[in-house]
Design a protein around this nucleic acid. Structure first.
Lengths: 244, 244, 244, 244
DNA sequence: AATGAATGAGCCTTCATTCAT
DNA sequence: GATGAATGAAGGCTCATTCAT
């Protein structure tokens, strides 16, 4: 007699959870953990204020779930953004592609950028969720990237040195994420136009490869003489674009 | 007999203001503008909650005053940290010294680091105070640094290219400020030891000068051939001279 | 066994709101908008301080709701207090009844008097809510009352003159609301006894009708000669009929 | 040797007190006792915040002093505003003059109006100072006015009846003080123009005298037959003004 | 005599959370 | 299972007042 049970609730249970996660990602990215309010998240998710308590427990558990479950989509491979792992490309070309993909992923304001914006906040104001983030996302990528660096440098560099070089390359990309607001004020113009992003990617690639290869030559010129011409002109195609 | 201990309350006028500024710098650096509470600031400053209203107007005005008045001390020159402007040094040496000074200033946990920590927050979560910060502190330093870069590259680079190179160098320093918490978790060890800072400074200098000089050679090899040997080993002299 | 006492919290939804309105009316009437505290209102309503925010938004919205929703009950007709609109009565008798009803409504210390006390405050210290009050409550009554005045005066008076006469009549009633505290001190006795109110109503009616009819006679004696005797003794019939 | 004592302070002592009173009168009139802040009063008086404590004790003592010492200037006599006590005029003429003077005193926004505005507040929200106000200012005026009324009515009225009549007359004036903000909203025009005040004074006088004389005729027509013509046309000159 | 910095209570509001439907 | 009304703790800010100069 009480067949008034709609088929909705069962699907709605998961749907509400998903909408809650999506809305929370946006609000956390925009306001940060502390300044984000559960009411705004629930309003944007079309859910009740008590839904967070029901589905996740409390605000912090929701935040952890956002960091865990709204990871960037696996585009190209388990280790790298884009298809930078393509084996048909040279190490330098994969380096260039990685830098470019990373930069675009960081800069764009699409739904994928939420994760990177939240991570930018975590670096300034770490929460307990940062440990998981580092272990699950950052460390694998960093390991992969260090392997790529070593392909370019060749042997003769310590693990520590490789790490420093990787940091130097990555830092140039993250700079435009972390300091974007300052740079916009410094230059007085929008920074995120696709054309500028291409130019930035070219510069960072050229700058970093120039440094890496020069350091490698200083360290042990012998190993890398196999293809010196190419190594010394990684920025050749980039240069042409820079002139426009 | 009533020669009691005077001169305290008279000095208290400015002293309270100073203690308020100092306490506020710490709390703002630790918690950020929104999450910092005036009660905690006043408690640490040994003052009443109404003292902020009296001396500064409100919380935001106190924040602006902190950014304005707790600026890093002018060490060495009006434009650059340390005595990087020393004219007796080569451009590369001044570059190395600037990087090292900047890195130490950013990394150390003394009272001077509060300013840089607050600025790191401003980049993620800008407030209205950021505009003044950029114009008063960041822009002059950036201009000075770009001039230094041009000394090293020589002519042949556009303003835009110089700016990109300056960003690439600076970003490697800021990386250890913005991503310090992540790097500590990645490497599992403290990052702020003086020995590691020296090593980081050497690496960033070597990496950046290698890139700059290689790009300069590619652009116009003629100008910089005067002292190529020295240019290729920038860290060696820097290390010995800069060790205090 | 779990047939516990329900229906309470369900009703509590509206009940809390109602108690909040009731308590707020009292506190606003007693202290005025600015000096009334939400804490006192909530304490008297048996609710939490946040209840006001939840049900109304903020203190000012609660105040507007009090003015809107605790309006005097429509006793007798949509336009006038009491059944002063009874068509079987002469204009003078309706005038007498209106004055008496108005006076009793204003003077009594029941829950209905809160509205008039708040309005008395609005006249001295207007808030943004006054505009709505004037348009929704005062203007309709004033229009109706002016129509009644014109019935008594007959033609020959301008709209402006009718308005002045209406003001003169109303003002004698409001006087005992606005200056009640002074009058109590002047006469040294309580003012609000029903016997005194009857006497006041009779006096105001007699005084006002005497003035109106005399002015009408001076203006155009012809129209009102129909029943001059009755017009000149308005308080006699009013007294006997209105005594409930 | 220490002849640095200026002659200023002694005069300044009284001057500061006076400026404090003057500024306080304005602020109290505008904001009311509770909403007036000592800081605003001191700022307008050009004095220190502690000056109030020094000269008067506290805020409430200052308020009492304002009510006591900023009484309306004795214009025309100790008992009545204006020269309404002029013995060469008839009672009706003195009545008209009193109404007119009272209305202008109440309506104008000059420094003299402060006292009446504060008193209007006292009626709604009495403070302990009201008792003194009533005894020192209101009661004498009311007594005088009742005597004037009795001159017009002649004998045959009880003290209570005279009081009611006096209230009816006064209330019509106070109405435009207490309900000014409402009337402005009702009529949509400024109320305080001198031309309107003249018209209001004429109306109130005509209305009240018409009522008084009619009531007197009803009570005992014999006594007033001495000068019936004049008594019955007190508004004759007013009428001419009303038509403009 | 007069200053103004310092005080602490109190204001309204917002927040994450919970409980009885 | 899901709602939304209720909770109590802070939050920033303003106030009248006082005390050492």
């Amino acid at each position: 007699m009480s067949n008034a049970i709609p088929a909705e609730p069962r699907a709605s249970q998961a749907a509400t959870r998903r909408q809650l996660l999506s809305a929370a990602a946006g609000v956390f990215a925009e306001r940060g953990f502390r300044d984000a309010t559960v009411r705004e998240i629930c309003r944007k998710a079309g859910a009740n204020v008590a839904a967070i308590s029901y589905h996740f427990g409390d605000k912090e558990a929701l935040y952890s779930a956002v960091l865990r479950e709204t990871a960037p989509p696996p585009a190209g491979g388990p280790n790298a953004p884009g298809n930078a792992a393509d084996a048909t490309l040279s190490a330098e070309e994969r380096f260039a592609r990685y830098i470019r993909n990373f930069l675009f992923q960081i800069a764009e304001d699409g739904p994928d950028c939420l994760h990177s914006r939240i991570m930018a906040r975590e670096m300034i104001e770490p929460t307990r969720a940062l440990d998981h983030l580092v272990n699950d996302f950052i460390r694998p990528q960093h390991q992969w990237f260090q392997g790529l660096i070593r392909e370019i440098t060749g042997p003769g560099f310590t693990v520590e040195e490789i790490r420093l070089i990787a940091n130097s390359a990555i830092s140039q990309v993250l700079f435009y994420k972390h300091c974007g607001t300052v740079i916009e004020r410094l230059h007085g113009s929008a920074l995120l136009t696709p054309a500028r992003l291409e130019m930035l990617a070219d510069h960072i690639t050229a700058f970093s490869l120039a440094a890496i290869q020069t350091l490698a030559l200083q360290r042990g010129p012998v190993q890398r003489t196999a293809r010196p011409n190419r190594a010394l002109r990684p920025s050749t195609p980039s240069r042409t674009r820079l002139t426009r």
